[in-house]
């Protein structure tokens, strides 16, 4: 049952991913992207990570997509921007297919599971999902977490520098 559900969602995710790059109108592309994000959120639920699913929907499908659509509407792309780049499609397709076959070959002949990490589904059940994430962020990954705040600061400063009218 879960497997069937997985394949169903996977097909929807890939199809909407395809729509993102094939749609003529940017807004349609953006909606395809929203759909992909929702499918990913469902995958998180299936992996027993409901908190991640909620964050995925709130941050990506919510906040970021709203921004993207705002930008699309503000820019009001002309016909020139809607032209699709078609150079090298054949070569890219061949290269992508080769990579795909390569990956499939290796997965078939090798072992694709790795070591078991510290956090198993059992610990998630017993401690709680949000608690585990919070603990990891503020203990084990405290420094990367703090560096991420510098990252955001740099991004904000950069955006202001590039976008401000008078400097």
């Amino acid at each position: 049952m879960e497997l069937i559900f997985f394949y169903l969602i996977a097909i929807v995710a890939v199809a909407s991913g395809f729509l993102v790059i094939r749609c003529q109108s940017p807004v349609n592309s953006a909606l395809g992207l929203v759909n992909t994000f929702f499918c990913l959120a469902i995958f998180y639920v299936m992996l027993h990570a409901p908190f991640m699913a909620a964050i995925q929907i709130m941050v990506y499908a919510g906040a970021i997509m709203v921004l993207i659509i705002f930008v699309i509407m503000l820019l009001n792309l002309g016909t020139e921007a809607r032209k699709r780049y078609t150079t090298g499609v054949v070569w890219s397709a061949i290269a992508s297919l080769l990579v795909l076959f390569n990956v499939m070959y290796f997965i078939k002949r090798g072992r694709v599971t790795g070591a078991e990490g510290d956090i198993t589904s059992y610990t998630v059940e017993s401690v709680g999902h949000v608690e585990l994430i919070g603990k990891a962020l503020f203990t084990e990954y405290l420094l990367p977490f703090e560096i991420a705040s510098i990252l955001l600061l740099v991004a904000i400063v950069g955006a202001v520098v590039l976008a401000k009218k008078e400097v």
Binding site: Y141, P144, I147, L151, A155, G158, L162
Partner: peptide, 24 residues
Amino acid sequence: DMLTIFLGLEVMSIALYVLAGFFR
């Protein structure tokens, strides 16, 4: 730690993206 390296790389890169396009 992979994460420290990755975030360091991103801090550096984002600053550089802006600097490369600095002459607006």
